[in-house]
Write a protein that binds this DNA or RNA. Structure first.
Lengths: 212, 212, 212, 212
DNA sequence: CTCTAAACGAGACGGTACGTCCAGTCTTCGG
DNA sequence: CCGAAGACTGGACGTACCGTCTCGTTTAGAG
C-alpha cells in the first residue's frame, strides 16, 4: 500500500553545462517543429531532453525565454548582407534571408512569441534585439552601400526606411500562412521600398516631389 | 447529515437567445480587460456571465472563436471613412480609427488572437475578415475619393497600397507597446503612403518611376 | 492589468508517502460519514485532504478502490474471535463484532460498494477478501473450538455453516436500516445456527438450550 | 448569430398513456442490460425511448423509482408456488423461480437498487414489497402445504423460516457473480432449510437432528 | 366538430463532477 | 553540491448528466 518503486533508474553519465544546454535546445526545437509554439509544453521538452523540469526552470523563468534562447542558439543571425552591386538585388537578398528564417520551424516560434511579448516587455525586448533589429541592420547596410553608389538618396538612410521591408514582410507573415511566396518579396522591393529610397535620376532629389 | 445547500439557485427566468449572448460577450470583454488574452479562461468567463461552460461550448468550439465574436460584437466596425476633402487628413483619420481600436482592450485581444491564428486557418480567416479587411476598405475608399479629386494616381487604387497604412500600423502595434503615439500615424502617412500614391503634380504619371 | 494573486500557496512542507495516505483515508472516511457513499465525490475528498485529484487518481483508478482501502485501513479487521467457553456466547460475540462494523459509517460504505461490485469483479474480490471472509473466519474458529469441547458436531466445520451467521446478518443489514437490533443477533444464533451445528443432544453437554 | 434551426422535426404520431410507458420501460430495461444500474442515465433512457426527459421526470421523481417500476412491469411476480407433493421439490422450485429472476438482467438492477435503498427508505419499502416479500410468500405457502401433509413442523410456519431460503439465495447473489449455480439451491434446501423446518421423525419436538 | 388544456418531443439552461493534463515547486536520491 | 526523476498542490480543460425550464406541436376529451 505504500508508494513507489524502490528501484531508481538514474543511470548514465550526467550532462552538465553545454551538453545539457544543447540537449535542451535541441528538444525545444524538435517540439516546436512537432507541435508548434502554442502547444509547446515544458513537460514535454524536459522528457524529450531527458532532463528534469527542475533543470529547465533553474535556467529560464518561462517558456518564452527558453524559446528565445533556443531559436537564437540554432539560428544565430542573418549573417552578412549580400553585396551584388545592385540595391535591388541586395534588398531582395536581405528579404530572402529573413523569409527563410520565418519559413523555417523557428518562424512559427517567433510568431508565437509575439503574442507573449505584450504581457512581458522584457521578452519583447529580447525578441526585438535578436530577431527584428538584425534584419533592419541588414537593410540599413544595403541602403548605405547604395547611397555610396548614388543609387539611394542620402535622406533615406534612416531606420524608418530600413525597417520598411522587414516590417511588411513580417506583417505578411503574421496574416498569411507559410511559406512566403517569392512574389511578395519582389513586390515589397519594387513597389514600396525602391520607389521611396531611390535617388532621383536626374537632378530631382525626391522621388515623389516635383523636381520643378 | 446530508450535505450542502438544499436551496436551489436555478430560479430566475433563464436567459436565452440574445440576452445570453450579450451577457457572455460582456463577460468576455470584462475578463479580457482584466487579465488579458493569454490568461483568459472559459471557466472564468462562464462564471462571470453566470452561465455554464456548456452554454459557451455549445456556441463556440474554442476560446478564440468566442473572442472574435465578442470583440466584433462590441466594436463592430470602423464605420465610415472620414471625408475632409484632403487625402492626407482622410488617411490620418483612418489610421486614427484603427489605432483607437488597437489601443482599446480589444487591441490586446486581437494581438493575442494572432498567435492562435497560425494553427487555425479558419480563425485567421475570421480575424482577417473582421478586423483587417475593414481597415483596408477604409483606406481604399479614401484613396478612391482622392483619385476622383486628382490627388491620387489611379494606379494606386489597389489593395497593396490600401493595406500599406494598416499593415505598418499593425506592425508597430505588434512590436511596440500601447498606446500608439500620434507621431507614428503622421510618419506613416507623410513618409510612406502619401509619397507612393500621390498623383504627379504636373503631367508625370508615376511618382517614383521615370516620367518619360 | 495583470491578474490574480501573485502569492503562491504551494508552500508548506509537502506530504508524501504514508502521511499523504493517512490524510486521504481520513478525508475519505469523513466524507463517507458526512454524505454517504452514493454522494461521495473524488473532488470533495481531494479538497478535504488538501490533496490534488491527481494524487488520488495516481493511486486508485476509481472511487470504489479508494473506499475499499480507506475503510480497510481504518477498520483493519475483526480481530480475534471471543473465547468465552460457550459456543453460543462466542457466536453472539462474533455477530456483534460484525454488526458493530456495519452499524458504523463504514457500514454504509460497504453497502454502497456492493452495487459497484457487480460491474467490477476485481472490486468484488477485494470486498470479499477484506470484509466478508474475515467474518466467516471468525465463525469457523469459534465452531472449531466448540467442536473440540464437543458442543459442535464435526461435520458442521465447513464454510457453509460458518458463513450462515454473517450471511444472514448481512442480509438483514441490506434489507433493513441501521442500526441492527440485538434481537436479530440472538435469533440468528438461537434459531438457525445453533440448531444446525449443535452436536446431537443425548450425551452432549450442551450449554445453550437444555431441552429438558 | 441567433440560435437554432427554425424547422422543427417533431412529426410522427405522439405516444401517450400505456404506449409511452411501454416504450420507457423497454428503454430502461435495454439500458440496464447494456450498461448496468450504476451507469444508467435518465438522459440515455429518454433518448432510447425517443421520449423527453420531461416525460420521465413527470412520472418518476428519480432513477430508482423508474427502475423499480420498469423491472416490476416486465417481471411482475413469481406466480404460483409449485405443488409437487414434496416439500423439498417445492422449495427447490421456489428458489429456482427467484434465481431465474436474479439471473436475468433485472437481477443486476435489483442489486443496484439495493445500494440506493439505504438513503431512501421509501425505495427500500418498494423493493421489499415488490421483489422480496413475494419470494417469502412463496416459501410460506409451500411450508404451509408441507405442514398440512405433516412434513413440516407447525412452529416453522413463520416469516423467519420462510425468508431463510430467499435470504441465503439473495446473499449468494450479492457476493458472487451470476449465474447462480444449481448446487447452491440444493445446498440451501438440504443443509439449511429442510433440517430446520422438518417435522421430527417420531415424537421428538426438535427440528435439529433426530437424537436417535 | 371545434376548442381548450394537458401532455409531448426537443433541447437549452445553470450547475456539478468527471478524469486528464500541465504549471511550477519541492523532495529524494545518485554521482 | 547539482542533476535526474518524479511526486506534489493547484487549477483549467472539455465532456457528460443532472433536474428545470421554455418552446411549439400534437392529442384527447369536453362542450
Amino acid at each position: 500500500m505504500s508508494s513507489a518503486d524502490p528501484v531508481d533508474h538514474r543511470k548514465g553519465p550526467r550532462r552538465r553545462g553545454d551538453a545539457l544546454y544543447e540537449a535542451i535546445f535541441a528538444a525545444t526545437l524538435d517540439e516546436l517543429n512537432a507541435v508548434g509554439y502554442t502547444e509547446l509544453k515544458m513537460e514535454r521538452i524536459a522528457n524529450r531532453a531527458r532532463a528534469s523540469k527542475g533543470s529547465l526552470y533553474r535556467r529560464w523563468p518561462s517558456r518564452a525565454e527558453l524559446v528565445v534562447d533556443a531559436v537564437h542558439h540554432c539560428f544565430p543571425s542573418h549573417g552578412e548582407p549580400p553585396d551584388t552591386g545592385s540595391v535591388r538585388e541586395d534588398l531582395l537578398g536581405c528579404l530572402q534571408k529573413i523569409a527563410n528564417l520565418l519559413n523555417s520551424p523557428s518562424g512559427e516560434a517567433i510568431r508565437g512569441l509575439m503574442a507573449d511579448t505584450i504581457r512581458n516587455p522584457d521578452l519583447m525586448e529580447a525578441v526585438r534585439i535578436r530577431f527584428i533589429d538584425p534584419g533592419v541592420g541588414l537593410f540599413l547596410e544595403v541602403l548605405k552601400r547604395g547611397a555610396v553608389r548614388g543609387e539611394v538618396r542620402a535622406s533615406a538612410l534612416t531606420p524608418r526606411f530600413a525597417s520598411l521591408g522587414p516590417d511588411l514582410l513580417r506583417q505578411h507573415f503574421m496574416v498569411h500562412h507559410s511559406p512566403i511566396p517569392e512574389r511578395v518579396l519582389t513586390e515589397i522591393v519594387d513597389e514600396v521600398v525602391l520607389p521611396l529610397v531611390r535617388a532621383p535620376r536626374d537632378h530631382a532629389e525626391h522621388p515623389g516631389r516635383d523636381p520643378k
